[in-house]
Amino acid sequence: MDLTDADITLSIAEEATTGAGPCNTVDLEVDGGPGAVAVTIGTLTERACADENLIGVEGRYITVLSNVVFAEAGDTTLVLRGRSGKLTYARQ
Score class of each variant (00 low, 15 high):
G85M: 11
G32R: 01
G33R: 05
G42C: 02
T17V: 11
A71S: 06
V68P: 06
T9K: 00
E72F: 10
A13S: 09
D2S: 12
T45R: 00
N67P: 01
E52L: 14
V30T: 08
Y89W: 08
T88K: 09
L28E: 03
G82M: 13
T77G: 02
T9E: 02
E58T: 06
T40V: 03
E58L: 08
L28N: 04
R91I: 01
T63Y: 08
A48S: 14
A48H: 05
A13T: 06
N67A: 13
N53W: 02
V68H: 00
S84D: 15
V57C: 08
L10N: 05
G56R: 13
A73Y: 03
G82R: 00
V68L: 01
L78G: 07
A71I: 01
L65A: 00
N67G: 06
D51Y: 07
M1P: 07
Y61A: 06
I55L: 09
D75W: 13
T4V: 05
T9A: 12
G56L: 12
K86Q: 15
G33E: 14
C23H: 05
V64K: 04
L54A: 13
A90V: 10
E46W: 04
T25I: 02
I55Y: 03
G56P: 09
G59S: 12
T4Y: 03
M1I: 06
I41W: 05
V57H: 02
E72L: 11
G32N: 02
V26N: 06
D27I: 12
T77Q: 08
A73T: 09
A38V: 15
R60A: 14
A90W: 08
T25S: 15
T9L: 11
G74M: 08
D2K: 12
T63N: 13
G56E: 14
T45V: 10
T76C: 09
C49K: 00
A38W: 04
S11P: 07
T76Y: 12
T25D: 13
F70T: 06
S66Q: 04
N53V: 11
P34D: 08
G32A: 09
C49L: 01
V30S: 04
A36G: 14
T17Y: 05
G82Q: 11
R91Q: 11
M1W: 03
N24Q: 02
T25K: 03
V57G: 00
T63K: 07
G74V: 06
A38Q: 09
L80W: 06
T40Q: 07
R81K: 10
A13Q: 11
R83P: 08
E52N: 15
T77D: 14
A71L: 02
E58V: 03
V69P: 08
D31E: 14
T4W: 01
G56Q: 10
T45H: 09
T25F: 15
A50L: 13
A90H: 13
L87R: 07
E29G: 03
G74L: 01
G33W: 09
V26F: 14
Y61N: 00
L28Q: 01
C49D: 05
T77V: 11
V57D: 06
L10C: 07
L3P: 10
L28P: 10
Q92D: 09
V39W: 00
V69W: 00
M1C: 06
N67Q: 14
I8T: 13
T18P: 04
V26W: 01
M1L: 13
Q92I: 09
V79M: 01
I8F: 02
L44H: 10
E52M: 12
I62Y: 11
V79S: 01
A13W: 00
G56A: 15
G33V: 07
V68F: 08
D5N: 14
T43D: 11
